[in-house]
Design a protein around this nucleic acid. Structure first.
Lengths: 145, 145
DNA sequence: CTCCACCACTTGCAAAAAGCAAGTGGTGGG
DNA sequence: CCCACCACTTGCTTTTTGCAAGTGGTGGAG
């Protein structure tokens, strides 16, 4: 299940991105790493959306295979594996932020978030600050739970 | 196949967005409308990625069901249907632009595009101009064959 | 050392979705 | 009336997802 035979449907960069990320789980894992600072299998498993273990394994392998994340044995606890974002993965933060912004306004439930999101859409500097903060948080060392 | 029983996996706005758009085709249809100015079933069908007719029908119905696109009979030719983006759909342009930018740098093939994309990542004004131009092109009337 | 909890997976199977090719009803021009 | 064309349907096979149970490897407690 976890093998890697990615075939590109076309040369279009959007299509290429979707070939790697176009499903319901891959970007959620990246979200977990970026927004919730998760680094461990069991942490992803505990997320609200309820991913199954076999799907999680598969997605982690694919994301590693396409160079978005890297997996290493945890130096502090050799029983577990640390998943971290690569530069390629960190570069997905703007995508995540736009998806979040859109979702808050157009796919969400609460109106509080909506207003905050609308503000972010108009105030580009604010958005840039959010992206920068998230990026810095990801390029620094984990710092653990 | 085209019914609408979207269940939300969680309240997270990113998750909500992916509930609506998290597959390999939905955003490609939006791309066709935004970037390639396509408005007709047969046009989407002719895209390089090669979507099947039943999948296309399903995605168009879902996108309509979630208010991202609207379908109307073509006033100029009653044999065909015009698909247009709603405000909610137009608001996806930034997501598309980020996906394109990321794809060009990290998932693409050519290095020419890569350089242009890197420039866009550094020059925020340029990116904003791209987004504005695309948005304007979408909110104006089709003007087609 | 043994035992045991815990970790990241596997495996097996059923259900859902995608993909393919062929067919269908409605429309308008010739 | 006929025919080409449009946006779909339908039937079928293949692939992916989802769920539950199981597995091998590790390290700490006793």
């Amino acid at each position: 299940m976890g093998s890697n035979a990615e075939t590109r449907r076309s040369g279009c960069p959007i299509s290429c991105s979707l070939d790697l990320l176009g499903d319901k789980w891959s970007l959620l894992i990246v979200r977990d790493m970026v927004m919730l600072r998760k680094h461990y299998f069991k942490e992803f498993l505990a997320s609200a959306e309820g991913i199954a273990t076999n799907i999680l394994t598969d997605r982690l392998n694919r994301l590693e295979g396409s160079g978005i994340i890297s997996k290493q044995p945890d130096p502090e606890n050799r029983r577990q594996i640390v998943y971290t974002l690569t530069e390629k993965g960190v570069a997905l933060i703007p995508v995540l932020v736009e998806l979040m912004s859109w979702g808050k306004i157009y796919a969400g439930t609460t109106s509080v978030d909506r207003d905050k999101a609308r503000r972010m859409q108009q105030d580009r500097r604010y958005k840039q600050r959010v992206i920068r903060e998230l990026t810095e948080g990801c390029t620094s060392t984990p710092g653990r739970s």
